[in-house]
Design a protein around this nucleic acid. Structure first.
Lengths: 93, 93
DNA sequence: TAAGAATTATAGTATATTCTAATATAATTA
DNA sequence: TAATTATATTAGAATATACTATAATTCTTA
């Protein structure tokens, strides 16, 4: 029954199947964060965070709003939040 | 809280984030299937199915038993089955 | 034990992804 | 308006992945 949606669902999964991007989503579970905040937690470069956010946005997984010269990023799809919660339930006790 | 397991979980997600591999898992939801049966449903080459199964086995997502000269493949982790069910609930109504 | 069927493995090319470094844009503040 | 801060974009090299074709295994059965 998933068959018709297989392309879309696998594209979404692919977008979250990277350690940095999965980590970003974990960070966004409890609210929006700026690029700089994510960079600090993830211990990587600004360009890296920005590029991964672009990938997540392209799938609608993350949505962003600009405020002054900060960009606040949050999980952009309730179903993705549910999915992340499920992953934690299943694979993190 | 996922943070410590991020590498493992993203590797697992990556292994199922391909249309053919996701389709294989959907096919295995209701029981074991041989490579030939999968090939027929997926409309691709034998080598292709075999390679994708190798990737799924490497993550423990699929396990296989040989019987005569057929190899029966099934979902090898109860949590993966739960995950597939969740994906269907969320993204296929 | 030889032939045939089913499955797995390997090689090579094409494509995609990731990371780093450098540059660009946009808003703020001095 | 110049300098600063935050973020985005681009280019290029390194690595990874996917697919096709082909060879190699393994098992059955004649």
């Amino acid at each position: 029954m998933l068959e018709e949606k297989v392309e879309a669902v696998s594209a979404l999964l692919k977008s979250i199947s990277h350690p940095t991007r999965l980590m970003i989503l974990c960070q966004l579970q409890d609210g929006a964060k700026t690029v700089g905040e994510l960079q600090q937690v993830l211990q990587t470069t600004q360009a890296n965070v920005s590029q991964h956010l672009t990938i997540l946005r392209s799938q609608g997984v993350v949505s962003s709003r600009k405020e002054a010269n900060f960009i606040y990023n949050r999980i952009g799809d309730q179903r993705v939040l549910t999915l992340i919660n499920t992953l934690q339930d299943l694979f993190c006790q």
